[in-house]
Design a protein around this nucleic acid. Structure first.
Ligand SMILES: [Mn+2]
Ligand SMILES: [Mn+2]
Ligand SMILES: [Mn+2]
Ligand SMILES: [Mn+2]
Lengths: 220, 220
DNA sequence: ATACAAAGTTAGGTTAATCTAACAATATTT
DNA sequence: AAATATTGTTAGATTAACCTAACTTTGTAT
């Protein structure tokens, strides 16, 4: 099926929302705000996507991707993450620069290009932000993740991904001395405001709860 | 200046026409047919591009790119040819497959991407079809070319580029055993229909005038 | 120098994607 | 259960990029 750039973004947003919230059902306002359009606009598009059998939805009801819609959405996320990996690994982009360009590149239509890119990158499993890259069959390796904010003093964990992909956040993470695969020791947590003192590579830093909620870790 | 995908294609088409025809002045119908739209459509866009000071043109007059318009058009051609080179050299695309994908990739907006790609490819001077790649300053190495059809029996020349970039033609070129940098001996030319017998790598082939007109060569 | 042909323009219409403003349905609170 | 707030829908308008059909200008040939 040939979809427009815009239609693709709606499908991707729907999948992203369910990934992030864990809930299958999505609302019109939620979708609209994720895409930075008005609810009326999203509503129009929803009718069109329903017509194309890519979403499951009825008036005043919740929105669901059909399996076909989901398949397409995963393919777009696959392309997005492969391109991010390419920019990061081959073209020396920093991890806070890749997302914006990948937002454009993910819409290039060429199955061959995706396959060849995947091969060129030696079939990477994770993108520069630690997010899993769906394979050519659309399978995603979802490994259970906790956030740094769930850790307690004395814990040691390893950073595996970031939740917030915005450039300011990513730059801040680097400034704190943190990166994917770094080991983190939780030194202490301030009761009052949940500020956390952590140690990475022998360097201590104090981070806010908001910050800690955006760092994915696995226990050591 | 932020231009739409479509506006970029109009600028590129204008430059291409002047390159191919050698003439600076372009007509509305010519432009429309190059873009596969109706003259009325091209006329609308011309007004818009004039407003943005990217083309020089007045009612019933001929069309010219302004220097700003030309600069942008060259940048798009630079991106197109860099991407073709990337696909060909790094992703193992064949030379008849690269153009179509590059038509999409040339519209990706990121100065950094272009610069990094150029560096990654070690600042290539020519694309897979032998066309010169403009450098980061917009300079193009135009080396004087003749077509194979201008050669006479006894001449030896070297193929440097192709004029027609269509997939069927490029595949045919390969079938004849021809490629960029191959040495060609002109064996004979049929007076009546200008069919040409050539020798490449010891292999003789007979090619039509139409074919010969689409192969660029330099004398040996 | 007309007449005809080719080239270019205008007017009016369509579709995709967006908006605002008004309205309707559903959910939450008192 | 009624009132209120939230959420979702509809109607009508706008813009970009396209179209067809009719018209005008320019170029060519008799
Ligand atoms: Mn991203
Ligand atoms: Mn990512
Ligand atoms: Mn090309
Ligand atoms: Mn080329």
């Amino acid at each position: 099926m040939l979809l427009s750039y815009t239609e693709e973004n709606y499908l991707k947003a729907l999948l992203k929302i369910t990934f992030d919230s864990g809930v299958e059902k999505v609302g019109t306002n939620e979708l609209a705000s994720a895409l930075d359009v008005k609810p009326a606009t999203a509503n129009d598009m929803l009718k069109k996507l329903k017509e194309k059998m890519l979403v499951d939805y009825k008036k005043y009801g919740k929105i669901n991707l059909t399996s076909e819609g989901k398949k397409i959405a995963i393919e777009i996320i696959r392309k997005h993450r492969l391109w991010e990996t390419f920019l990061y690994q081959k073209l020396e982009f920093s991890w806070d620069e890749v997302h914006e360009v990948a937002e454009q590149l993910e819409h290039i239509q060429s199955q061959k290009l995706v396959d060849k890119l995947d091969k060129f990158l030696a079939y990477p499993e994770f993108d520069p932000h630690g997010d899993p890259i769906p394979n050519s069959k659309g399978e995603i390796k979802i490994h259970y993740k906790k956030t740094l904010s769930e850790m307690t003093p004395g814990n040691t964990c390893k950073m595996v991904a970031v939740k917030d992909n915005s450039s300011p956040f990513l730059q801040y993470v680097v400034k704190v001395g943190l990166g994917i695969n770094n080991e983190i020791n939780i030194i202490s947590i301030q009761e009052y405001d949940l500020m956390m003192v952590i140690e990475v590579n022998g360097q201590q830093s104090t981070v806010s709860q908001k910050f800690a909620e955006n760092i994915y870790v696995v226990n050591k």
